[in-house]
Amino acid sequence: MKLKLKIWRQLNANTPGKLVDYQLEGVEEDMSFLEMLDYLNEKLILSDERPVEFDHDCREGICGTCGLFINGRAHGPLAGTSTCQLHMRSFSDGDTIYIEPFRGGAFKVTRDLKIDRSAFDRIIMAGGFISTPVGDAPEANAIPITHDEAESAFDSAACIGCGACVATCKNGSAALFTSAKITHLAKLPQGKAEAQQRALGMIAQMDAEGFGHCSNTKACQVECPQEISVTNIDRMNWEFNKAKVLK
């Protein structure tokens, strides 16, 4: 497989970047997208060029570290797939592939395709936890909630914090990420006690980081690799309004 790559190269946060063209031959369709970049980097290193830097960790779709804007879409063309789970069989010989970093909100490009997503960590630190030590996982039947509620909380908890929602939002809004974290804990008995201060704290931090407003276009749920539902945002808004009224 022979590809033409247009990759965003940027030395650091303070210098402007630009798309640079690369021709890459010998790509196999069984390579993952990140392996294709590894393969490119090997060639760049051998020819004494600076390799393309990108975020990655588990490479099995559960850590949320990798995240590239591929051909105009977050995590590329497939639905419900993170960048590391995208394979070159989704592309054809002779294709041109645009590879850009996620942009929007508080995300800043630190180098090439790497971005600073620490704003998400600070949102979690503003309330995305339960203060009381609750010990190990309790015996499932001892938790006073139904199976459906537990599953629904888990659906929200499945968010891996990759930032595709922000990257794809026309407003650079982090509503889907923040709402998934708020909803996950609001649905569980352990999380209910702090639900109000959690909602207010995390939303205040989300705003302080400079993320935009949610317009309910629902593009985020379409591009989310974990298919987190926008109904989480409805729940966040409900929790916020409830907290404001009851405060």
Binding site: W8, Y98, R103, F107, G172, G210, K218, V222
Partner: peptide
């Protein structure tokens, strides 16, 4: 405020495929 938060955009942008035009 949303414009500021959106940070410009992308060189190749197909985000429009993920939402109805009138919502944008």
């Amino acid at each position: 405020k949303n414009r500021q938060a959106a940070c410009g955009g992308y060189a190749y942008d197909r985000r429009g495929t993920a939402s109805p035009w009138y919502s944008r």
